[in-house]
Design a protein around this nucleic acid. Structure first.
Length: 487
RNA sequence: GGCGGUAUCGUCUAGGGGACUAGGACGGAGCCCUCUCAAGGCUCAAACACGGGUUCGAAUCCCGUUACCGCUACCA
């Protein structure tokens, strides 16, 4: 299979039995990166052969998740369930070409054999009893309508392949049992369906989680029985939770949709995921999807399982947030801003330049989109609430605070123009006249304007807020301070 | 249990026989900047699982041990 003219064809083949998991997303990402890097095709196949567990909702979630991440696929989506006839034909072919045989053992009988083996402390492997049935007996049972599965007859020898991440992996065939390929109801078992579809889709490289390593020899055997050259294989490591166990619900958010909800940017998600099990070499960390395409290579794939660290994801998100322009961030921020009823879309479009400047002002100290929205509250007209800790700390002496805010208001109100430089000059002069550090004025002012002790530089806040709103907030603050005796 | 895989700071990783007093990043501690918080800059603590080889020389190659993970279905 070393035809250099063959364009690479890879695929992502999730089963639609839940949401798009971060592990699956990362497998999809690696495949996508590979296809884009080498000018090949990235195909999507939904493995919906388990009718009982597959749902349309999960299928939709997979599409949405991939789209959100920016991973587009080529060609029509393949639904495995639609290929039932080919799967059956392939099973038939294996049976008729002598690579398989009918097995009449019932699940109950098999169960019993398994238990017996366990009791003897032996490992269970199907004993091929049905392969020893005389042909006429088999014919009689088939004639009688006895249900049977088709099993693959594993040949002698060793099955090995050159894995792109692990190098040579070899399995002695004696350790592989004669596995079922077609159920008694005529539906295919996973390994058969996968091989049949990968052949039909002309997949050249199968890149998937390393929990599939032990399926690989079975699949290679099936390729041969079906008279097809196996593709190449690359088994990427698993993702674990902080406790070193396979990532699952009890580790918190595991669906990519969860992170979307938490205000994580797709670019950051994809960047973070890529670094879990892959490295471009050197110290490269923050990258765009486009840069990852250029840098991607299976050589950089890790063998070891990676632990998912949400802290680093957040940091990564902050990095991407700072890097993106307000114009790019706007479509992500706006829905949340509107959802929080901070502003109307008319207002945002009327003051569009101001709005973009506000996003630029806030994004630096935000780690998620939510942070931006939270910080944006004071700049819109609605009421703000004073953080009790901020009040206790910065407005400890209420009379003095009110007095300072009054003076600040007077100075600001008398400014001919609402500009940062003039404000700073005026307020620093005020501090000097009063013989206090500038912070003694800026901090109470910050609380008056934002309700919080944390915000961008105070003059940036004043400018972004605008004269009218800022002065009004000062009046509100003084009302609050003077209005009550104690609280 | 059987089979397979893996093993560098707490975490993600760089490293492919000498450049290693093992580098970067997250997280942690501290300092600087400073009107606060971030961002940014600087500093510190923190790792080659263990034991044997091979070699003049091993984090790097080989073999064992240990630990961890995966698979072991008429699931995918």
């Amino acid at each position: 299979m070393s035809d250099a003219t063959t364009t690479p064809r890879v695929r992502f083949a999730p089963s639609p039995t839940g949401y798009l998991h971060v592990g699956g997303a990362r497998t999809a990402l690696f495949n996508w990166l590979y296809a884009r890097k080498y000018g090949g095709q990235f195909l999507l196949r939904i493995e919906d052969t388990d009718k009982a567990r597959s749902t349309e909702e999960s299928t939709r979630a997979i599409f949405e998740g991939l789209e959100w991440l920016g991973l587009d696929w080529d060609e029509e989506v393949v639904f495995q369930g639609a290929n039932l006839e080919r799967h059956q034909r392939d099973a038939r072919h294996i049976l008729e070409s002598g690579h398989g045989y009918r097995c009449f053992c019932t699940p109950a009988e098999l169960d019993e054999q398994r238990r017996a083996a366990e009791a003897r402390k032996e490992s269970f492997k199907y004993d091929r009893r049905c392969d020893r049935l005389p042909t006429d007996e088999v014919a009689r049972r088939v004639e009688a309508g006895m249900p049977y599965v088709i099993r693959f007859r594993v040949p002698e020898g060793t099955t090995e392949w050159d894995d792109l991440v692990h190098g040579t992996i070899a399995f002695p065939n004696k350790d592989i049992e004669d596995f079922v390929i077609l159920r008694s109801d005529g539906t295919p078992i996973y390994n058969l369906a996968v091989v049949s579809d990968d052949v039909a889709m002309r997949i050249t490289l199968v890149m998937r989680g390393d929990d599939h390593i032990s399926n690989t020899p079975k699949q290679i055997l099936l390729y041969r029985a079906l008279e097809h050259e196996p593709p190449r294989f690359a088994h990427v490591p698993m993702i674990h939770g902080l406790d070193g166990k396979k990532l699952s619900k009890r580790h918190g958010a595991t669906a990519v949709a969860d992170y979307r909800k938490e205000g994580i940017l797709p670019g950051a998600m994809v960047n973070f995921l890529a670094l879990l099990g892959w490295s471009p070499g050197g110290d490269r960390e923050v990258m765009t999807l486009h840069q990852m395409v250029e840098l991607f290579s299976t050589d950089g794939l890790q063998k070891k399982a990676a632990v998912f660290d949400p802290k680093k994801l957040e940091w990564m998100n902050g990095q991407h947030l700072s890097l993106l322009t307000a114009a790019v961030l706007e479509p992500l921020v706006t829905p949340e801003l509107l959802g929080a009823k901070l502003a109307t879309s008319e207002e945002l479009s009327r003051r569009h330049d101001w709005y973009l400047a506000l996003i630029d002002l806030l994004k630096v100290r935000a780690r998620t989109v939510h942070d931006i929205v939270r910080q944006a509250i004071p700049y819109f007209g609605g009421a703000i609430t004073y953080d009790p800790d901020a009040v206790a700390k910065q407005w400890k002496d209420r009379a003095a605070a009110s007095d300072i805010l009054g003076a600040v208001r007077a100075r600001l109100a008398s400014l001919p123009r609402w500009e940062a430089e003039a404000m700073e000059e005026a307020l620093r002069a005020l501090a000097e006249e009063r013989g206090v550090a500038a912070g003694k004025i800026f901090q109470p002012l910050r609380v008056a304007l934002t309700g919080m002790t944390v915000s961008p530089g105070i003059f940036d806040v004043l400018v972004a807020m605008g004269r009218e709103l800022a002065l009004a907030r000062l009046d509100d603050a003084r009302g609050f301070l003077g209005g009550e005796n104690d609280c």
